[in-house]
Simulated scan of single mutants.
Amino acid sequence: MLCDPAQYEDANTRPSHQGSRLQVVTAGATAGLISRFVIAPLDVVKIRLQLQTHSLSDPFSRAGLPPNAPVYKGTLPTMRHILRHEGITGLWKGNVPAELMYVSYAAMQFTAYRSITVLLHGALGEHRVPKAVESFVAGAGAGAAATAATYPLDLLRTRFAAQGVDRVYSGLFRAVADIQRDEGARGFFRGLGPGLAQIVPFMGLFFAIYEGLRVPLGQLDLPLGSGDATAGVVASVIAKTGVFPLDLVRKRIQVQGPTRERYVHKNIPAYDTGAVRAIRMIVAKEGFRGLYRGLTVSLLKAAPASAVTMWTYERVLNFLVGNAAEEGAHKAVE
């Protein structure tokens, strides 16, 4: 999972009196929680499309599949298929580990970004690097730390979202116990390599575009009251497209292991030789388009996720800062 750097940019640029560390963490965690719930159905659709190796137009690619094997094509048809066969709760499969992941990830990312920025200021002293470089380093470090720390929850989210009518895991605790028993501790970190490999190119693309658009867009009268938010959405869409193949490979590696053939797609190939080999296998079997399955819904998800996160973060932080200031004024009067 990669959150937009614009979501925690203000944690560094906001003056200290406009948000303590605890207030920034609380606002970031709340924003992640609400944003995740809103975009959960799109996330389930994206994962289903990413894991699908067969196509609607090529019947030979579906050879050997059960007669009732789902064939997804497009965001809305996939959503309708899930609703028809699994009910509305099917669109929120994996939401519990995902909510835990988003809250933890957002809080850690905001905190790590701020801490790394402070460390850079202390280490470099008067020899300050350009703002774009500082943001890139802090953003990449924060993303890597948060990704590694919350990765088991990301893997659980993917496996639950990949379940069809026949459940692989009966619940979150049962899933943790089964993975530990059958796959060991390493099973919780399948696909971590491509997950971490996404971060540096994502941050590089993001900040190159974000810094170029932020100032000119800030001079315009835009929705959400902020050119930063709009620049963040545009930069996020372009950056996500650039690293999307790594995200798809990560998802497919996450469902490897003894349960691989029990998910909604029964024909997920075995990718046991690493991310590079997995990419070659996908291109050989599905073409370059195979690396971008689910891209459309991923991009559709980026805009509302960024908008909801930024909107919630700003308002929660302002609320917390306002309450703290009001309490301070009352104590001063007393």
Rank of each mutant, 00 (worst) to 15 (best):
L120Q: 13
T53A: 08
V255S: 07
G193H: 00
A112S: 14
A112M: 10
H265A: 12
A278P: 04
P216C: 01
A69N: 13
A324W: 00
M203Q: 12
L224H: 14
I282C: 09
L213G: 11
T117E: 08
T111P: 01
H121W: 02
R128Q: 15
V255D: 13
L124R: 10
D178F: 01
T312P: 02
L2P: 06
A270S: 11
R167N: 10
T150Y: 00
T273A: 14
M1V: 01
R280K: 13
A324P: 09
V24T: 13
A11C: 15
T117V: 00
E183T: 00
S61E: 09
Y113M: 14
A106C: 04
V38N: 06
A302N: 08
I39P: 05
Y169T: 12
P216F: 02
P77R: 15
A140G: 05
I238H: 04
T13L: 14
L155E: 05
K251I: 05
A270R: 12
E286Q: 15
H121P: 01
A69L: 12
G218K: 05
T75W: 06
D154R: 10
D10A: 15
L2N: 10
I88D: 02
G191V: 04
A140S: 14
R114G: 02
Y313F: 15
V168H: 12
Q180C: 01
T158Y: 07
V38L: 13
L91M: 06
A106G: 02
L320I: 00
A305E: 13
N323A: 12
G64C: 11
R190A: 11
V243P: 00
A27G: 09
I253V: 00
L65T: 14
A284E: 13
A140P: 05
A303H: 01
I238F: 05
V333D: 01
A303V: 14
L49Q: 15
R174T: 04
V255I: 14
V133W: 06
L65P: 08
G322F: 09
Q180D: 12
A40C: 07
L153A: 08
G232R: 00
I282N: 10
E134P: 06
R190M: 01
L56C: 08
I209E: 00
T158S: 11
R62Q: 15
L246F: 06
L299E: 05
K331I: 03
H127G: 01
D221W: 11
R114L: 08
N12E: 10
G32R: 04
